[in-house]
Simulated assay, not measured.
Amino acid sequence: MNTENRYPVTASLFMLKEMKRRQEQVRRGYQLLKGKAEALRLRGRLSASELAATQGILGHTLKEAYISLAAIKFTNGESNALILENVGQAQIRVQRIPENIAGVATVSLQPVEEMNANDTLRYAGLGSGGHRTAEAKKAFREALRILIKFASLRNTCILLDEAIKSTLRKVNGIEKVIMPKLRNTETYILMEMDEREREEFHRLKMVKAKKMRSQAIANISRSGGGESNDEVRIRRSMPATHIRATECLTSILYSCHSLTSSSDSAGDFKPICYPHNWDDDDLLF
Rank of each mutant, 00 (worst) to 15 (best):
259 L>Q: 07
228 S>M: 08
115 M>F: 05
125 G>H: 03
178 I>V: 13
203 R>N: 08
234 I>H: 05
118 N>D: 14
160 L>F: 00
11 A>I: 02
196 R>Q: 15
160 L>R: 00
7 Y>E: 07
120 T>V: 14
240 A>H: 12
245 A>K: 06
58 L>S: 09
62 L>A: 07
116 N>C: 02
107 V>N: 03
11 A>G: 08
22 R>Y: 07
173 G>Y: 11
250 T>C: 00
92 I>K: 03
98 P>I: 02
122 R>I: 06
261 S>N: 09
53 A>V: 06
116 N>L: 09
97 I>V: 13
264 D>H: 07
212 M>T: 09
149 K>Q: 13
226 G>I: 13
68 S>F: 15
186 E>C: 02
134 A>D: 13
31 Q>E: 10
104 V>Q: 00
177 V>T: 15
140 F>E: 01
241 T>L: 07
197 E>N: 05
195 E>H: 04
88 G>I: 03
280 D>T: 10
176 K>D: 12
248 C>I: 09
238 M>R: 13
171 V>Q: 10
233 R>T: 14
69 L>S: 06
135 E>G: 05
284 L>Q: 07
99 E>N: 15
212 M>L: 12
68 S>I: 09
253 L>I: 09
143 A>E: 02
186 E>Y: 01
2 N>K: 12
173 G>C: 06
146 I>R: 08
189 I>F: 03
229 N>F: 09
110 Q>C: 05
127 G>H: 14
262 S>Q: 12
159 L>Y: 01
191 M>R: 11
281 D>K: 13
53 A>N: 03
78 E>Q: 09
285 F>T: 15
277 N>Y: 07
93 R>M: 14
23 Q>W: 08
255 S>P: 00
259 L>A: 15
208 K>W: 04
258 S>L: 12
244 R>F: 02
277 N>Q: 12
141 R>Q: 07
92 I>C: 01
9 V>I: 14
233 R>G: 06
79 S>M: 11
90 A>Y: 01
278 W>R: 14
242 H>P: 04
80 N>M: 13
54 T>Y: 02
81 A>G: 15
62 L>V: 06
22 R>F: 05
196 R>H: 12
122 R>L: 04
153 L>W: 00
117 A>T: 00
235 R>N: 14
264 D>Y: 05
162 E>K: 11
81 A>E: 15
122 R>P: 00
126 L>K: 10
237 S>P: 00
69 L>V: 04
209 A>M: 11
132 R>A: 11
182 L>E: 01
198 R>F: 07
247 E>T: 08
278 W>E: 12
118 N>W: 15
182 L>I: 11
204 L>I: 04
220 I>M: 14
193 M>V: 07
61 T>D: 05
77 G>Y: 03
149 K>C: 04
107 V>E: 11
236 R>D: 03
262 S>F: 06
231 E>C: 09
269 F>N: 04
68 S>W: 15
23 Q>D: 08
37 A>Q: 07
204 L>D: 04
3 T>K: 15
6 R>Y: 02
21 R>T: 12
233 R>V: 14
114 E>D: 10
94 V>F: 01
124 A>F: 11
233 R>F: 11
49 S>R: 10
121 L>I: 08
3 T>V: 15
162 E>C: 01
240 A>V: 14
205 K>Y: 06
181 K>V: 00
249 L>Q: 10
61 T>K: 03
255 S>C: 08
166 S>V: 04
110 Q>G: 02
155 N>R: 11
52 A>M: 09
257 H>R: 04
137 K>Q: 10
20 K>L: 12
159 L>F: 01
171 V>A: 04
